[in-house]
Every structure is written in structure tokens, then in C-alpha cells.
Computed example of a mutant assay.
Amino acid sequence: MMRIILIGYMGAGKTTLGKALAKAHNIPFYDLDWYIESRMRKTIPQIFAEQGEDGFRRIEYNMLHEVAEFDEVVLSCGGGTPCFFDNIDYMNQQGETVYLKASPDVLYTHLQMGKKPRPLLHEQEPTAIQTKIQSHLLEREPYYRKAKHIFSVDFLDNFEKINNSVRQLSSLLHLQQPTFNK
């Protein structure tokens, strides 16, 4: 049984590294937000609009308890997931938790590169976004640091860097070293 749960701030690379790690070790990958949207048949923004953050966090809690009990899984969690209820303690009981730690500059760059629109970036000046990232990190860091492993993430802007991170993460988790198709 292999359960790997990735946590960290949005833009840290949880989905990017999670997909690559899962593929390298031939186990299923789940993004908790995608799972919630699929099960609820609504987008995260729709859930927030209809039920508020408290309602969303209750749904997130329940869905986390479903996915984190799959026998084989690499799970990417939303940036706030570990910060509510007893989620981080539960994740630590269920599997190998990894905090993907990135500097505010790396997070900002990843968020700018990302394909998915982020409410945080919507019509804000770069300095305001960077300030928001730094303040969020200060609030969330105590929860993130409870993960069993901390893995520093650098810019993930090409396949070579992603594959190198997967190799390093595999070593950290004592997994067999993956081979990548060229």
C-alpha cells in the first residue's frame, strides 16, 4: 500500500509533481479539488458561492477522508486543506505527507505560468500578489511543517526539472528510482 499526500501553497507544483510521481511509479493520481468537482458536479467557485468557505471545507474534509483511504494513491491537496479541522493529523496517519516548500518568488512564477486561472491573481498588481502570498504562507506554514517530509521545490518550468524533482522525491520517500522515457 502506497499513499503519498502532497501539500503546500498553490503554485508549489503539487499537481505537476504529483502526476509525474504517480506516472513514474504506476499508481493513480488524484487532485483533491478535481475529485471534489467530479463528485459534487460543481466547480470549486460554485461550491464557495453556494455554501461559503465553511461549506466547502466540510465537503473537502469528507472527500479527503474518501481519497486518502485508497490503497494506492498520490494525492495533491488544495493549499488550505491541511489548515482546517484535523486534516493534517489525519493525512499523517494515512500516508507519507510531503510539504512542497517553495519560496514566494517561485510560487509567484509558477502561478504566472499556470494554465488555471487563480482568483488570487485576478486583476491585482504583482506586488499585491507577492504580499498576499507571503502573508498566506506565514499563516499556513505551521500546518505545512507538520508533514512527515519537507521537499524544497525550485522552478518547475521544463520536463528535465520535473523529472529531477521526481527522482529526488522518490529518494526522500525511499521509493525505487524511476526511469523516464526520452
Rank of each mutant, 00 (worst) to 15 (best):
K132D: 05
N164C: 11
M113A: 02
K19G: 08
T43M: 01
T127L: 13
N164K: 15
K19E: 10
T16G: 00
M91K: 06
E123V: 09
R118L: 08
H25C: 12
G18W: 03
G114W: 00
R118G: 01
F29G: 07
V166D: 10
S38G: 05
P117E: 00
K161S: 05
Q94N: 06
I7K: 01
T179S: 15
V106S: 00
E37V: 04
S152A: 08
Q46K: 07
Y9G: 00
H149G: 02
T81C: 07
N87C: 06
L21C: 08
T16E: 02
D89F: 09
Y144V: 07
T179Y: 13
T81V: 09
V67G: 03
D71S: 01
L64I: 07
Q168R: 15
I133S: 02
T81I: 08
A24H: 03
S135G: 11
F159R: 15
G55L: 08
L175V: 14
H122S: 09
N92W: 11
L32I: 10
L64S: 03
Y90N: 12
A68C: 02
K161P: 05
P178W: 13
A20G: 04
H122C: 05
G11P: 00
T109K: 10
I36M: 07
I59T: 12
R145I: 11
Q112V: 12
K42S: 04
D31A: 12
G55T: 14
P119A: 04
G79T: 12
L32Q: 03
Y108I: 06
Y144K: 03
L64E: 02
Q130D: 10
K115T: 13
I88N: 09
Q94K: 12
K23G: 12
M40E: 11
I150H: 01
I44E: 00
D157I: 13
S38E: 10
K116G: 02
T16W: 01
R57G: 02
Q46I: 09
T16D: 00
S135N: 15
K132W: 04
L172H: 14
R167H: 14
M91L: 13
L111A: 05
E160F: 11
A24F: 04
H122N: 05
L173Y: 09
Q168G: 12
T15L: 02
T131P: 06
H122F: 08
N158M: 08
V106M: 01
D89L: 12
H65Q: 11
N92H: 11
T127R: 13
T127Q: 14
E139P: 00
L138M: 14
T81L: 08
N62Q: 13
S170D: 06
I150C: 04
L156C: 06
L120F: 03
Q168H: 14
K161N: 08
H174L: 15
I5C: 01
A49R: 13
V98L: 11
D54V: 14
R57A: 03
K14Y: 02
D31C: 10
Y35N: 10
P126F: 04
C83K: 10
R39D: 08
G18P: 00
T179H: 15
G13A: 02
M91S: 07
A68P: 00
S103D: 09
G52W: 10
Q134H: 13
R41G: 03
E50S: 12
D31S: 10
P45E: 05
R41M: 10
I150T: 09
N164D: 15
D89N: 14
P82T: 13
K161V: 11
R167C: 14
T131A: 15
L107K: 00
D157F: 07
P45K: 01
K148Y: 01
D31F: 08
L111C: 05
